[in-house]
Write a protein that binds this DNA or RNA. Structure first.
Lengths: 192, 192
DNA sequence: GACGTAGCCTAGCAACGCTAGAACTTCTAG
DNA sequence: CTAGAAGTTCTAGCGTTGCTAGGCTACGTC
Protein backbone atom coordinates (compact mmCIF):
# COMPACT_ATOMS: atom_id res chain seq x y z
CA UNK A 1 0.00 0.00 0.00
CA UNK A 2 2.75 2.34 0.92
CA UNK A 3 4.44 1.39 -2.35
CA UNK A 4 1.26 2.00 -4.28
CA UNK A 5 0.79 5.38 -2.63
CA UNK A 6 4.35 6.39 -3.29
CA UNK A 7 3.94 5.44 -6.94
CA UNK A 8 0.84 7.55 -7.27
CA UNK A 9 2.56 10.41 -5.57
CA UNK A 10 5.47 10.31 -8.00
CA UNK A 11 3.09 10.04 -10.91
CA UNK A 12 1.21 13.09 -9.77
CA UNK A 13 4.43 15.02 -9.41
CA UNK A 14 5.53 14.00 -12.89
CA UNK A 15 2.16 14.86 -14.29
CA UNK A 16 2.27 18.31 -12.73
CA UNK A 17 5.80 18.88 -13.91
CA UNK A 18 4.71 18.09 -17.45
CA UNK A 19 1.80 20.47 -17.15
CA UNK A 20 4.09 23.27 -16.00
CA UNK A 21 6.42 22.75 -18.93
CA UNK A 22 3.57 22.44 -21.41
CA UNK A 23 1.99 25.65 -20.14
CA UNK A 24 5.30 27.49 -20.29
CA UNK A 25 6.07 26.25 -23.80
CA UNK A 26 2.63 27.05 -25.11
CA UNK A 27 2.44 30.53 -23.72
CA UNK A 28 6.02 31.33 -24.70
CA UNK A 29 5.51 30.19 -28.28
CA UNK A 30 2.42 32.36 -28.36
CA UNK A 31 3.69 35.61 -26.92
CA UNK A 32 7.34 35.30 -26.04
CA UNK A 33 9.09 34.40 -22.83
CA UNK A 34 8.40 37.75 -21.25
CA UNK A 35 4.72 36.85 -21.13
CA UNK A 36 5.51 33.67 -19.22
CA UNK A 37 5.23 34.71 -15.58
CA UNK A 38 5.37 32.53 -12.52
CA UNK A 39 1.99 33.86 -11.45
CA UNK A 40 0.27 33.00 -14.67
CA UNK A 41 1.97 29.62 -14.82
CA UNK A 42 0.79 28.82 -11.31
CA UNK A 43 -2.74 29.89 -12.13
CA UNK A 44 -2.76 27.75 -15.25
CA UNK A 45 -1.89 24.58 -13.39
CA UNK A 46 -4.27 25.44 -10.55
CA UNK A 47 -1.71 26.04 -7.82
CA UNK A 48 0.10 28.97 -6.31
CA UNK A 49 3.54 30.29 -7.16
CA UNK A 50 5.64 28.50 -4.53
CA UNK A 51 4.56 25.13 -5.91
CA UNK A 52 6.54 25.88 -9.05
CA UNK A 53 9.68 26.18 -6.98
CA UNK A 54 9.25 22.73 -5.50
CA UNK A 55 9.49 21.39 -9.05
CA UNK A 56 12.05 23.84 -10.35
CA UNK A 57 14.13 25.34 -7.53
CA UNK A 58 15.93 27.46 -10.07
CA UNK A 59 12.70 29.24 -10.92
CA UNK A 60 11.90 30.54 -14.34
CA UNK A 61 15.43 29.96 -15.66
CA UNK A 62 15.27 26.29 -14.80
CA UNK A 63 11.87 25.98 -16.45
CA UNK A 64 13.30 27.52 -19.59
CA UNK A 65 16.20 25.11 -19.46
CA UNK A 66 13.85 22.14 -19.16
CA UNK A 67 11.85 23.36 -22.15
CA UNK A 68 15.08 23.83 -24.06
CA UNK A 69 16.23 20.29 -23.30
CA UNK A 70 12.97 18.85 -24.62
CA UNK A 71 13.45 21.07 -27.63
CA UNK A 72 16.86 19.63 -28.43
CA UNK A 73 15.47 16.12 -28.34
CA UNK A 74 12.58 17.11 -30.58
CA UNK A 75 14.72 19.02 -33.07
CA UNK A 76 17.25 16.23 -33.33
CA UNK A 77 14.55 13.63 -33.91
CA UNK A 78 12.94 15.72 -36.62
CA UNK A 79 16.21 16.28 -38.44
CA UNK A 80 17.16 12.62 -38.14
CA UNK A 81 13.78 11.59 -39.55
CA UNK A 82 14.06 14.08 -42.38
CA UNK A 83 17.54 12.86 -43.21
CA UNK A 84 16.61 9.20 -43.46
CA UNK A 85 18.95 7.57 -45.92
CA UNK A 86 19.24 10.55 -48.19
CA UNK A 87 22.61 11.75 -49.44
CA UNK A 88 23.96 14.86 -51.05
CA UNK A 89 21.87 17.92 -51.74
CA UNK A 90 18.59 16.17 -51.06
CA UNK A 91 19.82 15.28 -47.59
CA UNK A 92 20.92 18.82 -46.85
CA UNK A 93 17.71 20.33 -48.11
CA UNK A 94 15.56 17.93 -46.14
CA UNK A 95 17.41 18.57 -42.89
CA UNK A 96 17.46 22.32 -43.48
CA UNK A 97 13.72 22.41 -44.04
CA UNK A 98 13.09 20.33 -40.92
CA UNK A 99 15.35 22.59 -38.91
CA UNK A 100 13.77 25.81 -40.15
CA UNK A 101 10.27 24.42 -39.69
CA UNK A 102 11.01 23.67 -36.08
CA UNK A 103 12.37 27.14 -35.51
CA UNK A 104 9.29 28.68 -37.04
CA UNK A 105 6.75 26.47 -35.28
CA UNK A 106 8.34 26.79 -31.86
CA UNK A 107 10.03 30.18 -31.76
CA UNK A 108 10.15 30.36 -27.99
CA UNK A 109 11.42 26.82 -27.53
CA UNK A 110 14.11 27.60 -30.06
CA UNK A 111 14.93 30.81 -28.28
CA UNK A 112 15.31 28.99 -24.97
CA UNK A 113 17.62 26.50 -26.66
CA UNK A 114 20.10 29.12 -27.79
CA UNK A 115 19.69 32.15 -25.62
CA UNK A 116 22.27 32.76 -22.97
CA UNK A 117 20.33 32.24 -19.74
CA UNK A 118 20.56 28.52 -20.47
CA UNK A 119 24.18 28.36 -19.45
CA UNK A 120 23.12 28.88 -15.87
CA UNK A 121 24.37 26.77 -13.01
CA UNK A 122 21.97 23.93 -13.74
CA UNK A 123 22.38 20.69 -15.58
CA UNK A 124 25.40 20.65 -17.77
CA UNK A 125 25.92 17.10 -18.96
CA UNK A 126 22.40 16.56 -20.30
CA UNK A 127 22.65 19.69 -22.33
CA UNK A 128 26.00 18.70 -23.76
CA UNK A 129 24.75 15.25 -24.73
CA UNK A 130 21.69 16.59 -26.52
CA UNK A 131 23.72 19.26 -28.24
CA UNK A 132 26.13 16.64 -29.41
CA UNK A 133 23.32 14.54 -30.89
CA UNK A 134 22.00 17.53 -32.80
CA UNK A 135 25.46 18.38 -34.04
CA UNK A 136 25.93 14.85 -35.33
CA UNK A 137 22.78 14.92 -37.45
CA UNK A 138 23.96 18.05 -39.19
CA UNK A 139 27.39 16.53 -39.71
CA UNK A 140 25.79 13.48 -41.29
CA UNK A 141 23.62 15.64 -43.52
CA UNK A 142 26.53 17.46 -45.12
CA UNK A 143 28.78 14.41 -44.99
CA UNK A 144 31.32 16.11 -42.74
CA UNK A 145 33.96 13.55 -41.89
CA UNK A 146 36.53 16.18 -41.02
CA UNK A 147 37.10 17.94 -37.72
CA UNK A 148 33.73 19.65 -37.66
CA UNK A 149 34.37 23.12 -38.99
CA UNK A 150 32.02 22.64 -41.92
CA UNK A 151 29.30 21.44 -39.59
CA UNK A 152 29.81 24.43 -37.35
CA UNK A 153 29.38 26.75 -40.28
CA UNK A 154 26.39 24.84 -41.61
CA UNK A 155 24.76 24.96 -38.21
CA UNK A 156 25.51 28.66 -37.93
CA UNK A 157 23.88 29.29 -41.29
CA UNK A 158 20.73 27.42 -40.27
CA UNK A 159 20.71 29.27 -36.97
CA UNK A 160 21.12 32.60 -38.69
CA UNK A 161 18.43 31.93 -41.27
CA UNK A 162 16.04 30.90 -38.50
CA UNK A 163 16.57 34.10 -36.56
CA UNK A 164 16.66 36.49 -39.49
CA UNK A 165 13.48 34.99 -40.89
CA UNK A 166 11.76 35.44 -37.59
CA UNK A 167 13.02 38.98 -37.20
CA UNK A 168 11.72 39.77 -40.66
CA UNK A 169 15.17 40.79 -41.82
CA UNK A 170 15.00 38.51 -44.82
CA UNK A 171 12.37 38.02 -47.53
CA UNK A 172 9.94 35.39 -46.24
CA UNK A 173 8.93 34.09 -49.65
CA UNK A 174 12.50 33.36 -50.73
CA UNK A 175 12.90 30.59 -48.26
CA UNK A 176 13.11 27.81 -50.82
CA UNK A 177 15.84 29.70 -52.62
CA UNK A 178 17.82 30.05 -49.42
CA UNK A 179 17.52 26.36 -48.74
CA UNK A 180 18.62 25.53 -52.26
CA UNK A 181 21.53 27.95 -52.02
CA UNK A 182 22.56 26.43 -48.73
CA UNK A 183 22.39 22.90 -50.10
CA UNK A 184 24.48 23.84 -53.13
CA UNK A 185 27.20 25.42 -51.02
CA UNK A 186 27.42 22.60 -48.52
CA UNK A 187 27.02 19.63 -50.83
CA UNK A 188 30.11 17.46 -50.59
CA UNK A 189 30.12 16.75 -54.32
CA UNK A 190 31.23 20.26 -55.08
CA UNK A 191 34.72 19.11 -54.17
CA UNK A 192 34.83 16.40 -56.79
CA UNK B 1 19.90 86.31 -27.64
CA UNK B 2 16.86 84.14 -27.89
CA UNK B 3 18.47 82.40 -30.81
CA UNK B 4 21.61 81.86 -28.80
CA UNK B 5 19.65 80.47 -25.88
CA UNK B 6 17.64 78.13 -28.08
CA UNK B 7 20.80 76.85 -29.66
CA UNK B 8 22.33 76.12 -26.31
CA UNK B 9 19.16 74.42 -25.18
CA UNK B 10 19.13 72.09 -28.17
CA UNK B 11 22.78 71.35 -27.68
CA UNK B 12 22.22 70.43 -24.09
CA UNK B 13 19.38 68.14 -25.07
CA UNK B 14 21.54 66.48 -27.70
CA UNK B 15 24.37 66.12 -25.25
CA UNK B 16 22.13 64.51 -22.70
CA UNK B 17 20.63 62.20 -25.27
CA UNK B 18 24.11 61.07 -26.22
CA UNK B 19 24.98 60.47 -22.60
CA UNK B 20 21.89 58.33 -22.12
CA UNK B 21 22.72 56.20 -25.13
CA UNK B 22 26.38 55.90 -24.17
CA UNK B 23 25.47 54.83 -20.65
CA UNK B 24 22.97 52.28 -21.94
CA UNK B 25 25.39 50.87 -24.48
CA UNK B 26 28.25 50.63 -22.04
CA UNK B 27 26.30 48.95 -19.29
CA UNK B 28 24.55 46.61 -21.71
CA UNK B 29 27.79 45.50 -23.33
CA UNK B 30 29.14 44.87 -19.86
CA UNK B 31 26.33 42.92 -18.25
CA UNK B 32 23.49 42.47 -20.72
CA UNK B 33 20.36 44.47 -21.37
CA UNK B 34 18.64 43.15 -18.26
CA UNK B 35 21.13 45.10 -16.16
CA UNK B 36 20.20 48.32 -17.93
CA UNK B 37 17.45 49.79 -15.79
CA UNK B 38 15.79 53.15 -16.15
CA UNK B 39 16.75 53.98 -12.58
CA UNK B 40 20.40 53.25 -13.05
CA UNK B 41 20.45 55.08 -16.36
CA UNK B 42 18.89 58.14 -14.75
CA UNK B 43 21.35 58.04 -11.91
CA UNK B 44 24.27 57.77 -14.30
CA UNK B 45 23.30 60.89 -16.21
CA UNK B 46 22.50 62.74 -12.99
CA UNK B 47 18.75 63.08 -13.46
CA UNK B 48 15.64 61.21 -12.42
CA UNK B 49 13.74 58.61 -14.35
CA UNK B 50 11.06 60.76 -15.98
CA UNK B 51 13.74 62.77 -17.77
CA UNK B 52 14.56 59.70 -19.82
CA UNK B 53 11.02 59.65 -21.12
CA UNK B 54 11.24 63.20 -22.39
CA UNK B 55 14.07 62.03 -24.64
CA UNK B 56 12.69 58.59 -25.42
CA UNK B 57 8.91 58.47 -24.97
CA UNK B 58 8.98 54.79 -25.86
CA UNK B 59 11.06 54.06 -22.78
CA UNK B 60 13.66 51.37 -22.63
CA UNK B 61 12.60 49.84 -25.96
CA UNK B 62 13.17 53.10 -27.77
CA UNK B 63 16.57 53.50 -26.14
CA UNK B 64 17.50 50.04 -27.35
CA UNK B 65 16.32 50.94 -30.82
CA UNK B 66 18.47 54.09 -30.83
CA UNK B 67 21.50 52.08 -29.74
CA UNK B 68 20.72 49.54 -32.45
CA UNK B 69 20.56 52.24 -35.13
CA UNK B 70 23.97 53.58 -34.15
CA UNK B 71 25.14 50.00 -34.25
CA UNK B 72 24.04 49.50 -37.82
CA UNK B 73 25.94 52.58 -38.90
CA UNK B 74 29.04 51.44 -37.05
CA UNK B 75 28.90 47.87 -38.33
CA UNK B 76 28.37 48.96 -41.91
CA UNK B 77 31.28 51.37 -41.76
CA UNK B 78 33.57 48.74 -40.34
CA UNK B 79 32.66 46.22 -42.98
CA UNK B 80 32.99 48.78 -45.75
CA UNK B 81 36.43 49.76 -44.47
CA UNK B 82 37.50 46.15 -44.20
CA UNK B 83 36.31 45.43 -47.71
CA UNK B 84 38.20 48.30 -49.33
CA UNK B 85 39.02 47.28 -52.88
CA UNK B 86 39.51 43.63 -52.13
CA UNK B 87 37.93 40.94 -54.26
CA UNK B 88 37.22 37.25 -53.93
CA UNK B 89 38.09 35.25 -50.87
CA UNK B 90 40.21 37.97 -49.33
CA UNK B 91 37.24 40.34 -49.47
CA UNK B 92 34.92 37.82 -47.87
CA UNK B 93 37.37 36.97 -45.12
CA UNK B 94 38.06 40.60 -44.32
CA UNK B 95 34.39 41.47 -44.09
CA UNK B 96 33.60 38.35 -42.09
CA UNK B 97 36.32 39.14 -39.57
CA UNK B 98 35.13 42.72 -39.24
CA UNK B 99 31.57 41.55 -38.75
CA UNK B 100 32.45 38.94 -36.15
CA UNK B 101 34.74 41.34 -34.32
CA UNK B 102 31.93 43.82 -34.00
CA UNK B 103 29.60 41.18 -32.67
CA UNK B 104 32.14 40.13 -30.10
CA UNK B 105 33.16 43.60 -29.00
CA UNK B 106 29.62 44.90 -28.70
CA UNK B 107 27.45 41.94 -27.79
CA UNK B 108 24.62 44.03 -26.42
CA UNK B 109 24.59 46.48 -29.29
CA UNK B 110 24.49 43.55 -31.66
CA UNK B 111 21.71 41.97 -29.66
CA UNK B 112 19.66 45.16 -29.82
CA UNK B 113 20.18 45.25 -33.57
CA UNK B 114 18.63 41.86 -34.17
CA UNK B 115 16.40 41.06 -31.26
CA UNK B 116 12.68 41.35 -31.75
CA UNK B 117 11.74 44.28 -29.50
CA UNK B 118 13.23 46.46 -32.18
CA UNK B 119 10.32 46.03 -34.51
CA UNK B 120 8.24 48.10 -32.15
CA UNK B 121 6.09 50.97 -33.31
CA UNK B 122 8.99 53.37 -33.55
CA UNK B 123 11.06 54.57 -36.45
CA UNK B 124 10.77 52.33 -39.43
CA UNK B 125 12.39 54.10 -42.35
CA UNK B 126 15.70 54.84 -40.65
CA UNK B 127 16.04 51.24 -39.70
CA UNK B 128 15.29 50.07 -43.21
CA UNK B 129 17.83 52.43 -44.73
CA UNK B 130 20.60 51.37 -42.39
CA UNK B 131 19.75 47.73 -42.86
CA UNK B 132 19.91 48.21 -46.60
CA UNK B 133 23.37 49.74 -46.37
CA UNK B 134 24.62 46.84 -44.31
CA UNK B 135 23.09 44.36 -46.72
CA UNK B 136 24.82 46.05 -49.65
CA UNK B 137 28.28 45.72 -48.13
CA UNK B 138 27.80 42.01 -47.72
CA UNK B 139 26.51 41.73 -51.27
CA UNK B 140 29.60 43.53 -52.53
CA UNK B 141 31.85 41.29 -50.50
CA UNK B 142 30.60 38.07 -52.05
CA UNK B 143 30.06 39.70 -55.43
CA UNK B 144 26.35 39.00 -55.42
CA UNK B 145 24.86 40.59 -58.52
CA UNK B 146 21.79 38.37 -58.46
CA UNK B 147 18.55 38.85 -56.60
CA UNK B 148 20.09 38.69 -53.15
CA UNK B 149 19.54 35.13 -52.02
CA UNK B 150 23.26 34.46 -51.71
CA UNK B 151 23.67 37.60 -49.63
CA UNK B 152 20.82 36.59 -47.37
CA UNK B 153 22.46 33.24 -46.75
CA UNK B 154 25.88 34.81 -46.25
CA UNK B 155 24.43 37.26 -43.80
CA UNK B 156 22.62 34.47 -41.98
CA UNK B 157 25.83 32.50 -41.68
CA UNK B 158 27.66 35.48 -40.18
CA UNK B 159 24.75 36.09 -37.86
CA UNK B 160 24.69 32.48 -36.78
CA UNK B 161 28.41 32.28 -36.20
CA UNK B 162 28.27 35.45 -34.12
CA UNK B 163 25.56 34.09 -31.85
CA UNK B 164 26.84 30.54 -31.55
CA UNK B 165 30.29 31.82 -30.70
CA UNK B 166 28.88 34.00 -28.00
CA UNK B 167 26.72 31.22 -26.62
CA UNK B 168 29.75 28.97 -26.47
CA UNK B 169 28.10 26.43 -28.76
CA UNK B 170 31.05 26.39 -31.10
CA UNK B 171 34.78 25.94 -30.50
CA UNK B 172 36.23 29.41 -29.90
CA UNK B 173 39.68 28.64 -31.21
CA UNK B 174 38.44 27.42 -34.57
CA UNK B 175 37.28 30.82 -35.62
CA UNK B 176 39.86 31.25 -38.35
CA UNK B 177 38.82 27.95 -39.81
CA UNK B 178 35.20 28.97 -39.86
CA UNK B 179 36.06 32.20 -41.62
CA UNK B 180 38.13 30.34 -44.17
CA UNK B 181 35.39 27.80 -44.70
CA UNK B 182 32.86 30.58 -45.16
CA UNK B 183 35.06 32.39 -47.66
CA UNK B 184 35.61 29.22 -49.67
CA UNK B 185 31.90 28.47 -49.89
CA UNK B 186 30.87 31.98 -50.84
CA UNK B 187 33.69 32.91 -53.19
CA UNK B 188 32.26 33.68 -56.60
CA UNK B 189 35.11 31.94 -58.38
CA UNK B 190 33.83 28.56 -57.37
CA UNK B 191 31.35 28.90 -60.19
CA UNK B 192 33.98 29.23 -62.86
C1' DG C 1 4.84 92.44 -11.07
C1' DA C 2 1.43 88.77 -12.55
C1' DC C 3 1.23 85.04 -15.85
C1' DG C 4 2.13 81.09 -18.94
C1' DT C 5 5.38 77.62 -20.10
C1' DA C 6 8.87 74.50 -19.81
C1' DG C 7 11.82 71.37 -17.06
C1' DC C 8 12.48 68.53 -13.27
C1' DC C 9 11.36 65.80 -9.20
C1' DT C 10 8.56 63.38 -5.67
C1' DA C 11 5.73 59.75 -5.07
C1' DG C 12 3.43 55.98 -6.43
C1' DC C 13 1.18 52.14 -9.42
C1' DA C 14 1.01 47.51 -11.21
C1' DA C 15 3.66 43.62 -12.28
C1' DC C 16 7.72 40.90 -11.86
C1' DG C 17 10.75 36.79 -9.60
C1' DC C 18 11.20 34.83 -5.49
C1' DT C 19 10.78 33.30 -0.35
C1' DA C 20 9.67 32.81 4.73
C1' DG C 21 6.56 30.91 7.59
C1' DA C 22 1.84 29.71 8.82
C1' DA C 23 -1.90 26.33 7.98
C1' DC C 24 -3.46 22.28 6.39
C1' DT C 25 -3.46 17.33 5.16
C1' DT C 26 -1.60 12.78 5.40
C1' DC C 27 1.12 9.16 7.31
C1' DT C 28 3.27 6.80 11.37
C1' DA C 29 3.67 5.10 15.98
C1' DG C 30 2.15 4.04 20.48
C1' DC D 1 -8.00 6.24 18.80
C1' DT D 2 -4.85 9.58 19.45
C1' DA D 3 -0.41 12.35 19.31
C1' DG D 4 3.23 13.62 16.87
C1' DA D 5 6.04 13.62 12.49
C1' DA D 6 6.33 14.53 7.73
C1' DG D 7 5.01 16.42 3.77
C1' DT D 8 2.24 19.74 0.98
C1' DT D 9 0.04 24.02 -0.09
C1' DC D 10 -1.13 28.79 0.72
C1' DT D 11 -0.87 33.55 2.61
C1' DA D 12 1.65 37.34 2.71
C1' DG D 13 5.31 40.05 1.66
C1' DC D 14 10.16 41.67 0.06
C1' DG D 15 12.79 44.03 -3.32
C1' DT D 16 13.03 45.42 -8.10
C1' DT D 17 11.28 46.48 -12.55
C1' DG D 18 9.14 49.89 -16.34
C1' DC D 19 6.41 53.61 -16.38
C1' DT D 20 3.41 57.85 -15.08
C1' DA D 21 0.48 61.46 -12.72
C1' DG D 22 0.86 65.65 -10.64
C1' DG D 23 3.22 69.23 -8.00
C1' DC D 24 7.18 72.38 -7.67
C1' DT D 25 10.47 75.71 -9.49
C1' DA D 26 12.51 78.85 -12.57
C1' DC D 27 12.37 81.10 -16.72
C1' DG D 28 10.68 84.37 -20.56
C1' DT D 29 6.79 87.45 -21.77
C1' DC D 30 3.23 91.07 -21.42
Amino acid sequence: MAEQTRQTRQERLDERRRRILAAARERADGGGWSTVTTRHLAETIGYTQPVLYSHFPGGKSEIMLAVALEGFVDLTQRCRAALGRKRGRRAIEAVAVAYLDFGREHPAVYEAMFQEPIDAEFARDDTRAELRAGFDVLADAIGDDGEGTATEVFWSALHGVTLLERAGRVRPRHRRRRVADLAARFAADRHG
